[in-house]
Simulated scan of single mutants.
Amino acid sequence: MDDKTVLGRIHGLVDEEHKLRDQLRRGEISGAEEQARLRELEESLDQCWDLLRRRRAARDAGHDPDAERAHSTGEVESYLQ
């Protein structure tokens, strides 16, 4: 997955987040449904941003950015702990 693809995925997730908020405002989904899906979106966004940062770091260090792979959501989410 190249940088452009990762950024495209990030933009798609952000668009979905906006749609969820609109659906909640229109009463199409419950607050609980919105929060559950937002949590999933946030985890996916964290995973994408992590991959993009690692690809850029690899490139800056003279390594092959294509050797970088997405880490699991659990691994990315545990960085702050």
Rank of each mutant, 00 (worst) to 15 (best):
R21F: 12
R56P: 00
A32M: 03
R26I: 00
D3Q: 14
A32Q: 11
D46C: 08
L24T: 08
R54M: 11
D60W: 14
R25G: 02
A57T: 07
Q35P: 00
R54D: 14
G27T: 07
D64K: 15
G12Q: 12
G8M: 04
R39H: 01
Y79E: 06
G12W: 05
Q23C: 13
L41V: 14
E42G: 06
T5P: 00
L38F: 07
G8S: 11
A58H: 07
E77F: 00
V6Q: 04
D64V: 13
E43L: 12
G31S: 13
E77H: 01
D3K: 13
L13V: 01
R26G: 02
C48M: 07
P65W: 12
E43W: 12
H18E: 14
Q35S: 13
G31Y: 09
R54T: 03
S78K: 13
E77G: 01
S72P: 01
L80Y: 03
D46I: 00
L45H: 04
E17P: 02
D3T: 06
R21H: 10
R9I: 09
R9T: 11
G12Y: 08
A58L: 10
E16G: 09
E34P: 03
Q81A: 09
R53A: 13
L52C: 04
R59P: 00
A32F: 04
E33V: 11
V6M: 03
R59H: 12
T5V: 03
Q35K: 12
H11V: 09
R37H: 10
A58T: 06
R25E: 11
Q81H: 08
S44T: 02
V76H: 00
S44A: 09
R21E: 07
E43G: 13
A61R: 15
H11T: 12
L45F: 06
D15P: 05
S78E: 09
I29R: 07
D2I: 11
S44Y: 01
D22Y: 07
E42Q: 11
D60K: 15
R9E: 15
L7S: 10
A36T: 11
D2V: 03
I10M: 12
W49S: 02
R26F: 06
M1G: 09
E16N: 08
R9A: 13
L80G: 07
D15E: 14
V14Q: 15
R25D: 12
K4H: 03
M1C: 02
E42N: 08
L41Y: 05
D3R: 14
V6F: 02
L51D: 02
V76Q: 01
R9N: 12
D2S: 15
R53Y: 12
L13P: 01
R39C: 00
E68F: 08
E17G: 15
R59D: 10
D22K: 14
R26Y: 05
A32E: 11
G62C: 14
A58Q: 06
L41I: 15
G12C: 04
L38I: 05
A70Q: 13
H71D: 06
E77C: 04
L45I: 10
V6G: 01
E68T: 04
E77T: 02
L41W: 11
E40M: 08
M1Y: 01
L24S: 06
E34L: 15
Y79I: 09
L45W: 02
L24Q: 10
E40W: 05
H18L: 15
L45N: 02
R54C: 07
A70N: 00
E42V: 08
L80C: 00
L38T: 08
G62Y: 14
S72C: 01
A57N: 10
L52Q: 05
T5C: 02
E28N: 08
